[in-house]
Structures are given as structure tokens and as C-alpha cells.
């Protein structure tokens, strides 16, 4: 009689089906739509549209905003993560929870709240500044968490060893703590940069028409039923993000893999 054996590969099957249905097939559909016109004929027209002057400007603007958001998040999150990782200031990780808690609330809700707050209380109008604030506010936890995690798990004896070898606290910071925290910084950058470059809801709610981002354009074409243009825009952005990530992973020698679960 044949015995029923559990092959471990069997457990991966549900995920395989799921990813085929919801990742691979949609991507292929996207690819198809990007390279055909309204009548289903093969064309490069959709991509040519991206290189019209106005679109390229929006593209550069989107990358600029994403870059700025990432830098601001990093500058705030890095020292904060270091302070939070010190158990003297953060007994039972309650403070970290306070920074993570906003993630539990719907992002749109928070953006509308922020908008009202800015306009009513601070008398600041919608626009670039408010978009930037919204972006930083929304994506900050994604920068904080990986850096915090790496500081919490950092081997204290390495820091002691540095002191022991005559390095002052400042030297120890630059020569031991910073290099050891790089994997967390890199995964933080990836987790903030990737979503900010393609987001559209935040710029929609907090920005003026001139603050539109590349994500807004994709959204515009799809809602206006220009599926072919929308697909081409989305595909183009996908390629750009892919290239950015490959470059950054090459630059850091793949050190971010441990904390990003090997996204790339």
C-alpha cells in the first residue's frame, strides 16, 4: 500500500498558486496592455508618451520628493532608534509602540486629519510642504523599525571592545555603531523610497494640482479608461524602481539582505 507522505514542497503550493494568480498573471497582463494600442495592435506609442516634456518633469519631481522624504526620515529615525534601543529610556519597548501605533490607523484618515490640522491650526495651505510632511509622517515607521531592530540586536560586547581598545564614545559611534547599523539603514531606505516614489493618495489629498506625482498620472490614465497608457506608465516605474534597487544593493554588497528578507 502506498503511504501518504508529506512532501515539504507541498506546503509552498498555496503560495505558488496565489503568486501566479495575483502577481505573475497581472504583470503579464500589464505588459500586454503596455505594448498594444486601443485596438490591440502592437505599438511603442504608450512609452513614447512618457517621454513628452510634462511627464518627464513629473517623474523627476516624484523621485525628488521620494528622495527628500527618505533623507528626512533617515535623519530623524537614526538618532531616535539609537535612543529607543537603549533600555534606560525605553523600558518594555512602550515608546517604540507609540511610534508604531499610527500604522494601525488608516493612512487616508490620517492624511485628512493632517490636512485639517495644517489649514485650521497652522494656517498653512496645501502644497509641496504639506505633501512632504504627509509623506514623512506616513512612512516614518518603516524607516524607524529596521534601524531600531538592528540597534536592539547589536552585540554590546562589540561596543565594549571598541572602548576597551581606546576608542572614545564618538569614535566608537562612527567606527563601530554606524557600520554595524548599515543593513538596517539600507532596508529602511528601500522600505521608504519604494512606496513614496509611486504613491498618489498623499499628493492628491495634501497637494495642489502642480504637486502631482508619477503615481497620480498612472491613477489618472486608469480612471480615464486609458488602460494602455496607464500600464505603460506603471511598467516604466516598475523598471525604474527595479534599477534603483539593484544599484543600491550592488553599492552595499547585498548587506541589506538579512533585514529585507532578500527582496533583491
Amino acid at each position: 500500500m502506498k503511504r501518504l507522505t508529506f512532501n515539504r514542497k507541498l506546503f509552498a503550493l498555496p503560495y505558488g498558486v496565489l503568486s501566479a494568480l495575483f502577481v505573475i498573471v497581472p504583470l503579464l497582463v500589464l505588459l500586454y496592455f503596455a505594448f498594444v494600442d486601443g485596438d490591440g495592435k502592437f505599438t511603442f506609442e504608450n512609452f513614447a508618451d512618457i517621454f513628452s516634456k510634462g511627464t518627464i518633469k513629473v517623474l523627476f519631481y516624484s523621485f525628488g520628493v521620494a528622495l527628500l522624504t527618505t533623507v528626512i526620515c533617515l535623519v530623524i529615525a537614526y538618532p531616535l532608534a539609537m535612543i529607543l534601543a537603549n533600555s534606560r529610556f525605553n523600558k518594555s519597548a512602550l515608546l517604540v509602540m507609540m511610534f508604531i501605533l499610527p500604522m494601525w490607523i488608516n493612512s487616508l484618515l490620517r492624511m485628512y486629519a493632517l490636512k485639517n490640522l495644517f489649514i485650521e491650526l497652522l494656517q498653512i495651505d496645501t502644497g509641496f510642504f504639506m505633501v512632504l510632511c504627509g509623506m514623512v509622517y506616513d512612512f516614518f515607521p518603516f524607516m524607524l523599525l529596521p534601524i531600531y531592530t538592528i540597534f536592539v540586536s547589536m552585540d554590546k560586547s562589540l561596543i565594549e571592545a571598541s572602548y576597551d581598545l581606546g576608542a572614545s564614545p564618538i569614535k566608537t559611534f562612527f567606527r563601530v555603531k554606524v557600520p554595524l547599523s548599515m543593513p538596517g539603514v539600507i532596508s529602511g531606505i528601500i522600505m521608504v523610497f519604494m512606496p513614496t516614489v509611486s504613491t498618489f493618495a498623499i499628493s492628491d489629498i495634501l497637494g495642489k494640482p502642480e504637486n502631482i506625482m508619477f503615481g497620480n498620472l498612472i491613477n489618472y490614465w486608469f480612471t480615464k479608461n486609458h488602460w494602455n497608457l496607464g500600464s505603460a506608465y506603471a511598467f516604466f516605474l516598475l523598471i525604474l524602481i527595479g534599477i534603483t534597487m539593484i544599484i543600491s544593493s550592488k553599492l552595499t554588497g547585498g548587506k541589506a539582505k538579512a533585514t529585507t528578507g532578500g527582496i533583491l
Partner: peptide, 27 residues
């Protein structure tokens, strides 16, 4: 500790993983 002029060999070595052998000893 960094002003005491004495050195320690740690239980689990505590070598700096981001530096090679030379970098560790030269630290």
C-alpha cells in the same frame, strides 16, 4: 574604559564583523 590603558579578551571574542583581520588588530 578607553582611558584605562588595559585591554580585554572577550568571552565570545567580540571581533568587529565589518573589519578584516588587519582592521581588527589595527583598531
Amino acid at each position: 574604559p578607553h582611558k584605562r590603558g588595559i585591554n580585554t579578551v572577550f568571552q565570545k571574542y567580540a571581533l568587529f564583523p565589518h573589519l578584516n583581520v588587519f582592521g581588527n588588530i589595527a583598531y
